[in-house]
Amino acid sequence: MRAARAVRAVLGLLLPLTVTAAMGAQATAAPAPAPASAVTAIRGGDALYSSAGSRCAVGFNATDGNAFYALMPGLCGSAGTQWFADAQRQVPVGETVTSHFPGGNYSVIRYTDPDLEYPSEVTTSTGPSRVERAIAPAPGMRICRSGPGSGWRCGAIQQVNVSVQYPEGVLNGLFRANVCAEPGDIGGPAVSGDAAVGVLVSATGNCATGGTTYYQPVVGPLSETGLRVGY
């Protein structure tokens, strides 16, 4: 039952219980998904498709020095979830090895396809952009967000240490920004320059009328898992 709720939440762009989803028309800033045969690399902001039927964007690629991983929201899938590079689920790319939700909101996917590249980069409106480090969020910090639903969107952090109510419980320690999102953007990375800041976990509004987004900071999860960006 819990897993089923998580899948439904991902498909609907998970929102706090106290707000209503504004499911407007899809923005046109996001490029169409590449055919499975054309995928040679996976970057932050690119879509992955789970064996449970959900879709989430990669937050950030990371490494422990031995293997490559994707940092994503915990709501995207529990440990053991299989992930694919294509909507037809014909190109397996990894498996969730740890997931924290609720109580935290991040998960780690271990990449398993040796034929793909996993650079420390995010997808932007003008091409890949390198991620060199991770930093903590701060009010007023300028950020840009990438996602397969609405593409590359920018704004500023409004508040840190925000709490959001989910069906499974309250999540603490998030940050809020005046950046819009659309369905399909969940999981996407927020960067400030060349620094990883957070992954998208919730949103209100849309990109036609404006919206607010909430993010899990990445400094803590990277430290807890022993992973690093900027390799």
Rank of each mutant, 00 (worst) to 15 (best):
Y69A: 02
P189V: 04
S125F: 03
M72P: 01
V160Y: 07
N178L: 09
Y166M: 14
G74L: 09
A85E: 02
N161H: 09
T123R: 06
G80L: 06
I186S: 15
T96G: 02
P167E: 13
N172I: 04
G151H: 07
I157W: 02
R130F: 02
A156Q: 11
S150L: 12
S120T: 10
E168M: 08
G103K: 01
N178Q: 11
R130W: 02
V122M: 07
R153V: 15
V97S: 00
A87N: 13
A136N: 13
S78P: 09
G149F: 03
L116W: 01
E117L: 14
M141Q: 13
G94F: 00
G127R: 07
Q82L: 10
A138N: 08
L75D: 13
S125V: 05
R89W: 05
P102H: 04
M141A: 09
G155M: 05
A138C: 10
A177M: 13
D185C: 14
Q158C: 06
C154Y: 03
N178V: 12
I186W: 04
V131Q: 00
F175H: 12
V162Y: 05
Y118E: 05
Y69M: 03
I186C: 09
S192M: 14
V91Y: 06
V179C: 12
E132H: 09
G155W: 05
Y111C: 00
V131I: 10
Y166R: 11
R142H: 11
Q90P: 03
V97K: 01
D115S: 15
G147T: 06
P114K: 04
N66Q: 15
G94V: 02
T96L: 01
Y111F: 06
E95H: 04
G74S: 12
S125M: 04
A70C: 13
Q158G: 15
F101M: 06
S150K: 11
C144Y: 05
S192Q: 13
R133H: 07
G140I: 09
V191R: 13
E95S: 12
G151R: 03
T96Q: 01
S107P: 05
E121W: 00
N161K: 09
G149I: 05
I143S: 06
W83G: 00
P167W: 12
L116E: 01
G80P: 07
T124Q: 04
A177Q: 10
S192A: 15
R176I: 08
S150P: 06
G193S: 11
H100N: 07
I186A: 14
D185V: 12
P73H: 02
R89A: 08
R153F: 05
C76L: 07
M141C: 07
I157G: 03
C180K: 09
S107T: 04
G188M: 08
G184D: 06
A134N: 08
R142Y: 08
G173A: 01
G147M: 07
R110V: 01
A134K: 04
N161G: 10
P73F: 01
P114L: 07
V164H: 02
S192D: 12
Y166E: 11
D113Q: 09
P139Y: 10
G187L: 06
C76S: 13
R110C: 02
P139A: 13
W83V: 00
S146R: 10
G187Q: 03
V108A: 00
T81H: 08
R110K: 14
S125I: 05
R133P: 04
G169E: 14
T112N: 07
R133N: 10
G187H: 02
F101I: 04
